[in-house]
Design a protein around this nucleic acid. Sequence first.
DNA 1: TGAATCAAGTTGTCGCTTCAACTTTCGCGG
DNA 2: CCGCGAAAGTTGAAGCGACAACTTGATTCA
Lengths: 159, 159
Amino acid sequence: MAAWVRFVAVLELLPGVLDSQLRHDSGVTHFEYFVMAVLAETPGGTMRMTELAGATNATPSRLSHVVARLEDRGLVERSPCPENGRATNARLTEGGRAKMRAAAPGHVAAVRRHVVDVLSPEQVTQLAAISDAILGSIAPAGPMAEGYRRYDGPAGESS
Amino acid sequence: MAAWVRFVAVLELLPGVLDSQLRHDSGVTHFEYFVMAVLAETPGGTMRMTELAGATNATPSRLSHVVARLEDRGLVERSPCPENGRATNARLTEGGRAKMRAAAPGHVAAVRRHVVDVLSPEQVTQLAAISDAILGSIAPAGPMAEGYRRYDGPAGESS
DNA sequence: TGAATCAAGTTGTCGCTTCAACTTTCGCGG
DNA sequence: CCGCGAAAGTTGAAGCGACAACTTGATTCA
């Protein structure tokens, strides 16, 4: 139970710290950074909106808003998907890639300093396993796939 | 590094799940619940605003807004501190206590279902240690004390 | 083929958090 | 005793995410 209180504190404080660092250093939020990071790792830097939403654990609405803002700043471009008229492709622009190159070192350093470096190697492994277990109970289809859903009632099991 | 991605997913998804459950079930946010829970655990259900902000890992501004909303709903009362004219005491009302009694079981169940029950006892212990280590690097004065601060530069160590 | 249904995104509105500015009060030095 | 700075909170404006409603394109099935 004491463990829970401390974990809640981490849930409350860590996102703010990461956001502050990226905002100050590079003028992007952590979520914007994450979206661009996912795009940067795909061949061509292109991905469907829904797929991107799944990969970033975001609702379609949130992703749409964020990508619209990134597009206004010239970091991402949207274009209708040729194969599927209702789908949209998001592509990282060269400016977005440059932004990532500029922001990555500082962000990685912050993550190391605040998380990785204060944990032992075993603790990092433990954290991965713990995260997987929790994700299994709140994102049944997995974090890196579609099928995400929010809380939908007190009975998590099939009824 | 894969551990980090999964942990980020937890940071992103878990707060939303907890918020949804409490909102649906009891009409309060997770942070509002936490504020009232801290108040409920103090003798008299009373605490200074600054102290409460420290205990809930919130900025004074955030706490002020939240307590104002709770006061509008009759769950908390504010009164000027007699000993210190610039301080304010927040007190949990009987209605707030009733709200807590109604909300607690569902919330505890959700925490169990999504976190505690999917982890082994050792993992819970590990999570506590990991949380402590991370908190040590982002909240130097400790989670349950004042002295919280936000990110303030790339060099966390003394220079 | 054509109507109903579903999928993919977008948009608007509302509530919450942050940031900066402000008010009031306490403590202290001259 | 008076003024100055720090402490404690509050307030207002701006930004971001959630929710619901909506638009448009694909599917299915009779």
